[in-house]
Nucleic acid binder design. Structure first.
Lengths: 229, 229
DNA sequence: ACAACGCTTCGATCATGATCGAAATGTTCA
DNA sequence: TGAACATTTCGATCATGATCGAAGCGTTGT
């Protein structure tokens, strides 16, 4: 019997190094990063990071583009992000509740981006609010935007038709690894995150995936969305 | 910045061994297997397999139950299967199309089970047929069973309300790693696979995840579902 | 109780691959 | 052209963990 087990092992081995896992984790926000920054995140020297990055690119987990003397690395496809999401969800489950659980940075847990949508307490709160207002149906495996939900987003100025040719799903759940409950992902999730960024409701912190919720953002998420944050 | 990168690496390391990857791959059909059988699949001695299995159980990827002198191992939760699905999907993408692609066993590609639903050419054909008949809407990230679809399954004798308390989604896409296109998963997918098994349309082969399509099955899938297989 | 069987633990060996210093490459700008 | 900078390549070292033989454990059936 021939299976893809060898390829599975090979792929897993690529993620099994703490440095490379850190790099992939860092790139989960969908942005591109320089080799130096990724070396810093991984906690290794630039030459070691270079070796790791070469392997990740060779296996097509990352793609690289040259910008001047720098090289910018990013996840090759959303499929990679989706796979990592799935793995992080399992990784976040502590098999030994007695052991001190992996301490998760408070800012990270509060609000962050997950590839291109909102995650953490903020992501889950926004999702819950939309669900309670009948905008959304979502569980651990699938999601659906209601008529009211489409109208709600349209009123916020979100045009969901924009990337029409995209095969990407409108509305999809993503299991939040810090909250352990699903939050909104897919095109709708990305659109909400974009909007929040554009209106300065959230700001990316210079490093890491965590984001800062501005005063205006707090008001907006509470009043416009009805989120309890 | 604290992330779950270390836990991600640890989890990946667990899958990164060819033996363990083989074991996990073997258990993707959702059935339980003895340690001996898994040792055989992994291509290692029983004592080595025992060591691998202990690590997988300790990390809660597998659960074990004793049946007489044997120990039966199975995937701990459907979440694990879902994670492995995601990884296999990426693993099946050959980063170097020039290299000979991982040769996939013909029986495996033809028809197999993926945790608890149909996969391979059969799974995709059934899914396509249901889609073409308006029973199903499905793309790479989400799925929905139409009214006609519910009626269709009901007429086949499938009661989808049965596991009511289950939080599991009715209808969900699963990216087929051999066909590289989504097939039907979720409770509906499992129900179809169950039905096919009960009516002897498909038979599990003694070892491996591939299944045999019976003569009656070929007729049923073509006539009842309209599948082109 | 004893033998048969499946599985696990122990101990020693061995291979893989992660790491960094040193040096080379390549790009931009003056 | 040459200096400054980011990145990569090379080479040597070192740690981790996969492996199997031998022995031990636990369950079942006679």
């Amino acid at each position: 019997m021939q299976t893809i087990a060898p390829e599975l092992a090979e792929l897993a081995a690529l993620i099994a190094d703490p440095g490379r896992a850190g790099i992939l984790s860092r790139l989960m926000d969908g942005r591109a990063q320089t080799a130096s920054e990724l070396a810093r995140v991984a906690g290794v020297t630039p030459q070691t990071a270079s070796w790791h990055l070469a392997r990740l690119v060779e296996r097509a987990l990352l793609k690289v583009e040259r910008r001047g003397p720098c090289r910018l690395y990013r996840l090759a496809t959303p499929l990679i992000a989706q796979m990592l999401e799935g793995m992080m969800t399992v990784a976040a489950i502590d098999p030994h509740p007695s052991r001190p659980p992996p301490w998760i940075d408070a800012e990270m847990r509060r609000a962050r981006t997950c590839y291109d949508h909102l995650a953490g307490e903020l992501g889950v709160a926004v999702t819950d609010a939309m669900r309670e207002h009948g905008h959304l149906r979502l569980d651990q495996e699938a999601g659906e935007l209601t008529t009211s939900g489409r109208a709600f987003l349209r009123d916020l100025g979100i045009d969901l038709r924009s990337p029409t040719r995209s095969r990407r799903q409108l509305c999809r759940p993503c299991l939040d690894w810090s909250e352990r409950r699903p939050h909104l992902a897919g095109r709708a999730g990305a659109a909400v995150a974009d909007l929040a960024m554009q209106r300065d409701w959230i700001r990316r912190r210079p490093q890491g995936r965590s984001v800062e919720i501005t005063e205006a953002g707090l008001v907006a998420f509470r009043d416009l969305f009805g989120a309890r944050i």
